[in-house]
Structure formats: structure tokens, C-alpha cells
């Protein structure tokens, strides 16, 4: 048995405290989500009751159905998925480029770190407001396809994917590249056929991370897609203007990717959250 236990109190009292803590943490996460679920399946009138009801009296599927039948919702879902996919692909591709340059040269590392730090210091409005003006000029503002927003999300996610991929490329031994080099392969070919396949898992992680970053992103989406909304600003409007059932159903829908990743890929996610804290 490890002596490390001494760092924590033990005995019957401590075991009890541990159990209470576990219960508090799980309830703290589960209770709010239960309430959201309850609001999503009860008629609107019950959600406005005072005092609020802790258990549903009547159950309806109307709100959950509306998420897929109301045109505005369906359009926002498709738009959010499209934007997140574009962001995932382009941020992963460009992040791989930058991460590789960072792993293979010192000045590349310096350039990469400077870019990462510089963009980290910029507040959202300092970029989004002038960008909105520029997008209006070049016709990327509030497009139904939200292509402008997808570009912004790619730029937001790029430092994160570069930071995730840089150590992965660093771990690939140079000898492998040198062997291919002696066989006459071009640098680009070496990168494509040796480095990229070896970094498959980190590349997948980078894609998932940037997909989720885009799926969750609220500020730029609010300012750049003022009528053709993605899910986060749509949820914001339904929350603020008091459509409880629809907002709750939307919120549940928005949690799906996170829950999938959380349950299926816990280890990936842990690294992901650490990197997410760096964005």
C-alpha cells in the first residue's frame, strides 16, 4: 500500500466526508441538467409556475420535436455543424503546418509562440467589431452559409491545434525523415507520407477540439451572424426572451457533442481541456 495516503486524512470520518463530496459533485452536475431536461419535456405553463415545480406534472414532446421541425432551429443546427466542420478541417490542416514548422526549427517555434500569445491577448470585441465592418464591405457578413464565421473560428482554433500538434511532431524521430530524404523524397512528400500518418491520433484530437471550439463559440457568432444565427446566439435569444421549453431543448441538443466526447474519449478530452484553457 502506498504511503502517499498520508497526504489525506483517513479513517471512518474521512471516508464519510469523501462520500459526501462525491455525492455533492455528482449532484451539482446532474441536478441542473435534470432541471433543463424537465423544462424541455414539460408544457411552457409549468415552467412559469411559482414556486417552480421540481417534478413534471405533464410531459410533452413538443419542444424536443420543435428543435427539428421549426425551420429556424433546423437551419441553425445545419449551419452550426457546417461551420464547425469547416473550422475543424481548416484549423487542423493549418495547425499541422504551423505545428510542424514549430517542431522542426527554432525560429518557427518562436514565430508560432508569438502568434499564439498575441492572439490570446486580444479581447473578442477588439477583433469582432472591425471585422464586422470589413465583412460588410466584402460581403461575408451574416451570410446564410456563415462562411465568414467559419473562417474566424478557424483562426481562433489555429493556435490551439498548433500547440496540440507541435509536441506530436517533435516526438517523431528525425532519423525517419532523414532516411526518406536520402531516398530522394521531397520535404513536402516526407511531411505527407511520414509525419502526418504518425501523428494520426493527435490530428484527430485537434480536429475534435477545433470542432467543439466552433460549436461552443458565442461572441463572434453573436456579432457576425445577426440574423442567420448559429446555435449559441440562437439559444441566447430564446433564453433571454423567455421561451423556456425551446431554449431548454436547444441547450440539451448543444450538449450532445460534449457528452459524447466526455464519455467516449475521456483521456483525449483531458488533454483537450488543458489545451482549451490555452486558447
Amino acid at each position: 500500500m502506498s504511503r502517499r495516503e498520508v497526504s489525506m486524512p483517513h479513517g471512518a470520518g474521512a471516508a464519510f466526508i469523501r462520500r459526501v463530496a462525491a455525492l455533492a459533485i455528482v449532484l451539482g452536475a446532474a441536478l441542473p441538467i435534470y432541471l433543463l431536461l424537465k423544462q424541455a419535456v414539460t408544457p411552457e405553463i409549468e415552467s412559469f409556475a411559482w414556486p417552480p415545480l421540481w417534478l413534471p406534472r405533464r410531459v410533452t414532446a413538443a419542444h424536443l420535436e420543435s428543435v427539428f421541425t421549426v425551420v429556424e432551429f433546423r437551419a441553425a443546427i445545419i449551419r452550426s455543424i457546417a461551420v464547425a466542420l469547416v473550422c475543424g478541417v481548416s484549423a487542423t490542416v493549418m495547425g499541422a503546418m504551423m505545428g510542424y514548422a514549430m517542431a522542426r526549427s527554432r525560429w518557427g517555434r518562436r514565430a508560432g509562440m508569438t502568434a499564439v500569445t498575441a492572439t490570446r491577448l486580444l479581447p473578442m470585441t477588439a477583433v469582432a467589431l472591425p471585422l464586422a465592418l470589413a465583412f460588410i464591405l466584402i460581403g461575408l457578413y451574416d451570410r446564410p452559409s456563415a462562411i465568414g464565421l467559419a473562417l474566424v473560428h478557424s483562426a481562433l482554433a489555429l493556435p490551439m491545434t498548433a500547440l496540440v500538434l507541435f509536441p506530436a511532431f517533435l516526438a517523431i524521430p528525425l532519423e525517419l525523415e532523414e532516411a526518406a530524404f536520402l531516398d530522394g523524397a521531397s520535404p513536402l512528400r516526407i511531411f505527407m507520407t511520414i509525419d502526418l500518418p504518425l501523428a494520426r491520433a493527435p490530428l484527430a484530437a485537434a480536429f475534435i477540439l477545433s470542432f467543439i471550439l466552433s460549436w461552443d463559440e458565442f461572441g463572434f457568432a453573436l456579432l457576425l451572424q445577426v440574423t442567420n444565427r448559429t446555435l449559441p446566439p440562437l439559444l441566447y435569444y430564446y433564453t433571454v426572451f423567455g421561451d423556456v421549453g425551446a431554449a431548454s431543448a436547444l441547450a440539451l441538443l448543444m450538449m450532445i457533442p460534449a457528452i459524447c466526447v466526455l464519455v467516449a474519449l475521456r483521456t483525449v478530452l483531458r488533454g483537450a481541456l488543458m489545451a482549451g484553457s490555452l486558447r
Binding site: I25, A29, I33, D216, M254, M255, L262, L273, G276
Partner: peptide, 17 residues
């Protein structure tokens, strides 16, 4: 998982909650 959840779900969902 429960301890990580508040950060894993989208911020806007947490704020709605």
C-alpha cells in the same frame, strides 16, 4: 466526469442554466 462537466458543456448552455 461530473467535476469536469461544467467546463465541458458549451458555455452558453451553462449560462442558460
Amino acid at each position: 466526469i461530473a467535476a469536469v462537466l461544467p467546463f465541458a458543456i458549451p458555455e452558453i448552455v451553462l449560462l442558460t442554466l
